[in-house]
Simulated scan of single mutants.
Amino acid sequence: MADFLQQRLAEIAAAGTWRTLGGTLAGVDFWSNDYLGLARTQVPGTSLQKRGETAASTWSGATGSRSISGDAAEWHGIEADIAAYHGYPTALVFNSGYTANLGLLSALVRRTDTLLYDELVHASCRDGIRLGLGKALRFPHNDLLALERLLAAARPDGQRFVLTESRFSMDGDLAPLPELAGLCARFGAQLIVDEAHSGGLEGRAGAGLVASHGLQDQVFATIITYGKAFGTHGGAVLGSQNLREYLINTCRPFIYTTGPAPDQWYGIAGAYAKLANYHASRYAALGDNIAYFRSAAERAGLGVSLSGGEGPIQIFSTPGNAAVLAAEAACRRAGLLVKGIRSPTVAAGAERLRICLHAYNTAAEMDALLRVLAGLGDVD
Rank of each mutant, 00 (worst) to 15 (best):
T362F: 01
A91T: 03
L177M: 12
D118F: 07
D217M: 08
A72I: 08
D34E: 04
G182N: 12
G301A: 00
R342I: 01
L353T: 03
G239N: 09
G182M: 06
R333F: 02
W75V: 14
A80I: 01
A39V: 02
G320N: 06
P344V: 03
N361G: 04
L36Q: 00
G303Y: 04
G188T: 14
A154R: 09
V219P: 10
V324I: 00
L133S: 15
W265E: 05
L108I: 14
F4N: 08
S96G: 10
D143K: 07
L108E: 12
Y292N: 01
Y246C: 03
E351L: 00
L325R: 07
M1S: 13
D3V: 13
V219T: 13
L163S: 10
G188A: 13
I223M: 11
R294S: 10
A323G: 06
Y256K: 15
G64W: 12
E53D: 09
D113T: 07
A350K: 14
L120G: 15
R138G: 15
A297W: 00
R66F: 06
G77Q: 10
G335W: 03
T112K: 11
L38I: 03
T250V: 12
L92C: 01
H358W: 00
G377V: 04
P44C: 00
A56S: 14
Y266C: 12
I12W: 06
S65Q: 12
G235L: 08
A273H: 02
P156K: 05
N321F: 01
G320F: 00
T257K: 08
A363P: 11
Q216W: 06
A189Q: 07
S295P: 05
A280Y: 00
L133D: 13
Q42P: 02
C251Q: 08
V324H: 03
R252D: 14
R160H: 08
Y226L: 12
V379C: 12
P344T: 04
E351Q: 02
Y226Q: 08
A296D: 05
L5E: 09
T258F: 07
L133I: 14
L5I: 13
S317V: 03
L177S: 14
W31F: 13
V193W: 07
Q218C: 06
D380G: 14
A181N: 11
S65G: 15
A329Y: 05
G103I: 04
Q241T: 15
A296P: 00
N361Q: 04
R342S: 04
D81N: 05
G208S: 08
E195Q: 07
G27C: 03
A107W: 10
A269M: 05
S317K: 09
A280S: 02
S57M: 11
Q42F: 05
C356V: 05
A56M: 15
S305Y: 05
A181F: 03
S106T: 08
L337Y: 06
E79A: 01
L370S: 00
A368W: 02
A334D: 00
L243R: 13
E74I: 07
T222M: 09
D288W: 01
A284S: 00
P253D: 15
